[in-house]
Design a protein around this nucleic acid. Sequence first.
DNA 1: ATATATGCGATAATAATTGTCGTATATAAT
DNA 2: ATTATATACGACAATTATTATCGCATATAT
Lengths: 131, 131
Amino acid sequence: MLKITKKVEYALIAIRHLQENQDNLVPVSDISASYGIPKEILAKTLQKLASSNIIESYKGPAGGYKITKKVAKITLNDFFEILEGPTAIMDCYFQDGCDHLNSCNIRTPINKINDSIRNLFNNLTLADISQ
Amino acid sequence: MLKITKKVEYALIAIRHLQENQDNLVPVSDISASYGIPKEILAKTLQKLASSNIIESYKGPAGGYKITKKVAKITLNDFFEILEGPTAIMDCYFQDGCDHLNSCNIRTPINKINDSIRNLFNNLTLADISQ
DNA sequence: ATATATGCGATAATAATTGTCGTATATAAT
DNA sequence: ATTATATACGACAATTATTATCGCATATAT
Ligand code: FES
Ligand code: FES
């Protein structure tokens, strides 16, 4: 439990790689080959990051991806939520219609813990992944 | 991603319930009925907690579970690890033989983040779940 | 034109989680 | 002694989430 997904892992690896190669356009195949990441899954992940303007994409030969300047300002929480939706250790942190809400005796403390975790991820940026 | 399991959710609900009923022995069926938790799965979870001496078990009629005094000192990290094994957002935090170790460019930052999360859970106890 | 690269939806394979069933053991009460 | 209640434990089934693959479309540099 409490695992990040491979999708996020791959994305973080890619972000760091792009940060270390800021001067070049890097195609997906380069990254997937370098780190042994399945190409298609990485491609779709980077597409999502591109549509969120975290990276820029260029099509065609000699095309690829490039990091944007704002990357250093993207928090880990934003990054996670772009790829995986709301960060919550239990669904009922966001979901309003929880069946057990009436009888539930742990909602408040769980939400506090969740706040702490979100706070942690809100105070880290993608720049912190490259150190 | 980053979800706790139902097993842990159920266990936390049970712990809080037992804390609120310290004077009685509470059978699994009471808790499972009160919160709509599948009985068998809760039973096995409480058995694990009993064998770790977090709660005490009494067999036979009028038997059930009872909280121990040391509960307030059990950290959430210990609790999680009893039920789900090592707390790690990625396997390679603990696992030594990661295939990607040579090429991996995010191990150090990921491990730092993991330390922060473990630190968070090490500074909360089961008593904090009952507030 | 052609080769290379991203963009996108559908679907398959795998793994993890969640839940069920059957049986054994202990014990209090009758 | 017998019965009813409760924990203890292992094997298995069902469900869900994650991970990976496939096919086709679009853009663009040469
Ligand atoms: S389980 Fe949803 S509110 Fe507690
Ligand atoms: S993926 Fe295992 S060390 Fe980075």
